[in-house]
């Protein structure tokens, strides 16, 4: 059974690193770079087990996605949300809504270790 992780991040390199970390732990990774696309994907697609959400993305900001979609859509209620931002203050603003807040720079090892702990135990 594949466990789906959705990375919403406009920087290709960071997305790549995050994807490697998540794949390394055993996640199936899906990646979108744009707020609008992300909105569509979140509303209609298969609900991911985990979302890695960047706050600074084009068209619809990470904050709006979090407030208006992720927290409102019922089928996303169980999804684990990790937000990533370079702005510590912004992180604080959304700390209540997210399960984890990671402040950039985000370490590959740190992300790998964290997501490995979050992954559901294989029975």
């Amino acid at each position: 059974m594949s466990i789906l992780a959705l990375i919403i991040e406009d920087d290709e390199d960071l997305a790549n690193i995050f994807a490697e970390a998540l794949r390394g732990v055993g996640f199936t990774v899906e990646h979108v770079t744009d707020g609008k696309v992300a909105q569509e994907r979140l509303r209609n697609g298969e609900p991911p087990y985990l979302i890695l959400l960047d706050m600074h993305i084009p068209h619809i900001s990470g904050g709006d996605l979090l407030t208006n979609i992720i927290k409102k859509e019922e089928h996303l209620a169980k999804t684990i949300v990790i937000i990533t931002t370079a702005d510590a203050r912004m992180g604080e603003t959304y700390v209540e809504m997210a399960d984890f807040v990671l402040i950039k720079p985000i370490s590959f090892v740190q992300l790998r270790d964290l997501t490995s702990r979050l992954k559901p135990r294989e029975e």
């Binding site: 690193i17 490697e20 702005d87 950039k104 720079p105 370490s107 590959f108 790998r112």
Partner: peptide, 23 residues
Amino acid sequence: VSHELRTPLNAILGYAEMFKEAV
């Protein structure tokens, strides 16, 4: 600067870690 400089540095850091972790 806050966003644009830190993001590529984060990428450098991440790739270096991946080397180190022998990914």
